[in-house]
Amino acid sequence: MSSPTGGDPRPEIHRTAQGDWVVVGRRCRACAEPVAYAWPRCPACAAAVEAAHFGPRGTVWSSTVVRIAVPGHTPPYSLAYVDLDDGPRVLAHVAGDEPAPIGRPAWLVGTSDAGDLQVEVDR
């Protein structure tokens, strides 16, 4: 059993002056790879990266509903991989206990009570 150590590894999000939620990540200066995390180098090519914002809009790549007990989360809970427009694939929570429809638009709406990235999905 592991307990949280160090900083929170989940993507950092930020609310813009326009009121949109965006992921504060990195973009590779060499290959333009978008990354949802503040990592020191590009995971695809190891080149230098620079700060970049991604979102709020994207598309549901896949989804599931977790129905087993997981520490820190209360089942059932709905998860989706969302490909942010011109941005990285991020794992996000979706309100409710139905699988998010794949291929539908989604957008970041902040974080859940547990501190997880949260999206709303256009069903």
Binding site: M1, D8, R10, T64, V66, A69, V70, Y77, L91, A92
Partner: peptide, 30 residues
């Protein structure tokens, strides 16, 4: 473990509750 493997909380997706069955479920759903 008392049940499924506890997701690793130092990993971003583990911290967000992506247990292994859920990770494979994403592939299955796709």
């Amino acid at each position: 473990f008392s049940g499924a493997i506890t997701p690793e909380t130092t990993d971003p997706e583990g911290r967000a509750g992506l247990a292994m069955p859920a990770m494979y479920a994403m592939s299955a759903a796709r």
